[in-house]
Every structure is written in structure tokens, then in C-alpha cells.
């Protein structure tokens, strides 16, 4: 137990140092882009004068030296305050909290779907390597992996929303329907089908290919032969012996991708008008809404660090040879 506590303690100290470096780097990076929020707003207004831009800069605090702005920002972040979006006239926290659930629901479902389907299909293909089934799965995975994700999304909308009228094409819920309880959840679920399928399909392809390759490497190893020789049932051999050993690379990749769950769905959120955080980030870049962008970067960095720790934990669960405490 003490070992595990030391593991977490060490990781936490590292995490704080990494976060600090990330905040400073992000801050300098976003300010290095040409233009600033005032320029963008002047551009959007279609008319302007010098006073307009000067007033905006003063309001946004952009008239102060960059170092002072950075100091203020770090001071705020260290107290958990992610700042204020002057463009949207709202605290950044409020904006993030509003948008975070939609993204998490979308990406977590897609992620779960992709993992289950990907590992399942990958295993199936590997076990039946060289057969028609393997060929079909491999081709499907290759197609899903290689086709542009937004194109799949649009085609699904065209088929299921426009032609068949079965599923809503976009949005998070039926706006103005005033649904509550189960009906509301069912409504959200219906809206989730297409975006989750589109996003899930891509990741599924990655996991399927990875699982298949990894299993093929493991399946001929000595301990598998031993297991077979013991007379174990084939399913036991596959799930307890082969898959458990073959799955580590899949978990590594999944761990990396889980960290990107927040930002990884910009295209899907755009095509399906999903009110998530990926779009917020994309728009914040274009609008030079520094505080919002930095806030999203910050949250994503925290997510990546957390998922790295979780991935390490899962390693040790699946493979007892990996001991975090030592």
C-alpha cells in the first residue's frame, strides 16, 4: 500500500510540474498567433474605428505587457480560476461545464463501443486468420480507418435522416420538445446513434487491426501451446491466455486516445452540430478567445495525465508482472 501511495505521490508531483510547463507554453503559443480577440471582433463587425479596437483591448486586458498577463493568468489558474471570456461575457469554467457533458457522453460511448467491437472483431479475425471472415473484418476495418470521418458522418445523415427519416441528423436533443425523464434520455440516445457510430467506427478500426496483429504474435508462443496441451477449451485459451497477453499494446493506444477524448471529436461535433467542447476549442482558436482556449488546453492536459496514471494501473491489473509499487 505504501508503495502505491509513493507511486501516486511521485506522479502527482510530476503532474504539477508538467501542468505548469504546459500552461506557460500554451500561453506563449496562443499569443504568438497573429491577431488578437479585438482584431477578430473588429473584422466581424464589418466596420470599425481606432477607438473601437482600443476599447476592446483595454477591456480584454490586452493592453498590458505579456509577462504581466502571464503572471495574472498563472495566479488565477493556481487558485482554480480559469479566467473570463470577454468575447462571450462568461467565466471560462461556466462555458466548459456547459459543454463538457455533451462531449464526454459522445466520446466515452464511442470509445467504449470501439473498444468492445474492435477487440471482439480483432480477436475473431485473428482466430480465423486467412479465412473469409478474417478477410471481411480486415477490409471493413481498413475502410473505416481510411475513409474521412466527416464523409462517413454525412453519408450516414443522408441515409438515415434525409432518405429514411429514422434518426435525427444533428444536435444533442429535440429542441423545444420539453421532454423529461426516460423520454428525454431516449431522445438523447436517438441523437447519439449517428455521431457515436461515426466516431466509434474509426477507433474500432484501429483497435481491431491492433488486436489482430498482436494476437497473431502471441498465439504461437510456447505458453499457448502448453495451455492447449493441457487440454483447455479453445475459448479459455483464447480469452485467458492469448488475449490477456496480447491486449497490452491495445491498452497503451487506448490510454493515449482516452486522454484525447475531449479534443478528439471536433469534426464529429461540427458535422452533427453537437454542442461539445471540441467545437468550442476550434472556435476559440479562430476567435483568439485566449482564456477559453487555455482553459480547454488545461482541462485536456489534466485528462491526459489522469488517463496515463489509470493506464498504468490497468497494466498492473492485467499483467501482474508489472508492479507499480516497486
Amino acid at each position: 500500500m505504501a508503495g502505491l501511495a509513493r507511486f501516486f505521490g511521485g506522479r502527482l508531483i510530476k503532474a504539477v510540474a508538467i501542468l505548469f510547463a504546459i500552461v506557460v507554453m500554451n500561453f506563449l503559443l496562443v499569443h504568438a498567433a497573429p491577431g488578437d480577440p479585438a482584431t477578430v471582433m473588429a473584422g466581424e463587425a464589418g466596420a470599425g474605428d481606432a477607438q473601437f479596437v482600443a476599447q476592446l483591448r483595454e477591456q480584454f486586458g490586452l493592453d498590458r505587457p505579456l509577462v504581466v498577463q502571464l503572471g495574472t493568468y498563472i495566479g488565477h489558474v493556481s487558485t482554480g480560476d480559469l479566467g473570463f471570456s470577454y468575447r462571450q461575457q462568461k467565466p471560462v469554467w461556466e462555458l466548459l461545464v456547459q459543454r463538457l457533458p455533451a462531449t464526454l457522453v459522445l466520446t466515452a460511448s464511442a470509445f467504449a463501443l470501439a473498444l468492445v467491437l474492435g477487440i471482439g472483431l480483432g480477436t475473431l479475425a485473428a482466430v480465423h486468420a486467412g479465412t473469409l471472415r478474417d478477410g471481411a473484418i480486415t477490409v471493413l476495418a481498413l475502410l473505416a480507418y481510411a475513409t474521412p470521418i466527416y464523409w462517413i458522418g454525412l453519408m450516414l445523415i443522408l441515409l438515415f435522416s434525409v432518405r429514411l427519416g429514422w434518426l435525427p441528423a444533428f444536435g444533442y436533443e429535440t429542441v423545444g420538445a420539453g421532454l423529461t425523464g426516460i423520454a428525454h434520455l431516449a431522445d438523447i440516445a436517438k441523437h447519439m446513434v449517428l455521431p457515436v457510430a461515426t466516431l466509434g467506427l474509426f477507433y474500432m478500426a484501429v483497435y481491431a487491426r491492433l488486436t489482430r496483429a498482436s494476437i497473431q504474435e502471441v498465439r504461437d508462443m510456447d505458453f499457448v501451446k502448453t495451455a492447449r496441451a493441457k487440454g483447455l477449451r479453445e475459448s479459455t485459451v483464447v480469452f485467458r491466455h492469448i488475449l490477456r497477453n496480447a491486449i497490452l499494446p491495445v491498452i497503451t493506444v487506448a490510454g493515449v486516445q482516452a486522454g484525447q477524448l475531449i479534443g478528439g471529436s471536433i469534426l464529429i461535433e461540427t458535422v452533427f452540430a453537437w454542442p461539445g467542447i471540441g467545437r468550442l476549442a476550434f472556435e476559440a482558436v479562430l476567435q483568439r478567445d485566449y482564456q477559453v482556449l487555455l482553459g480547454i488546453f488545461f482541462i485536456s492536459s489534466v485528462m491526459v495525465i489522469v488517463f496515463n496514471i489509470v493506464t498504468d494501473l490497468i497494466y498492473s491489473l492485467i499483467d501482474p508482472r508489472i508492479d507499480l509499487a516497486s
Partner: peptide, 13 residues
């Protein structure tokens, strides 16, 4: 209701 639909192709659909 003013609906935010960021993708041009989705808007047409």
C-alpha cells in the same frame, strides 16, 4: 429557435 449548425453540408441537409 436559432440553431447553431457549424458544417455547411449539414446545414443544407
Amino acid at each position: 429557435y436559432f440553431r447553431v449548425i457549424p458544417d455547411a453540408a449539414s446545414r443544407a441537409l
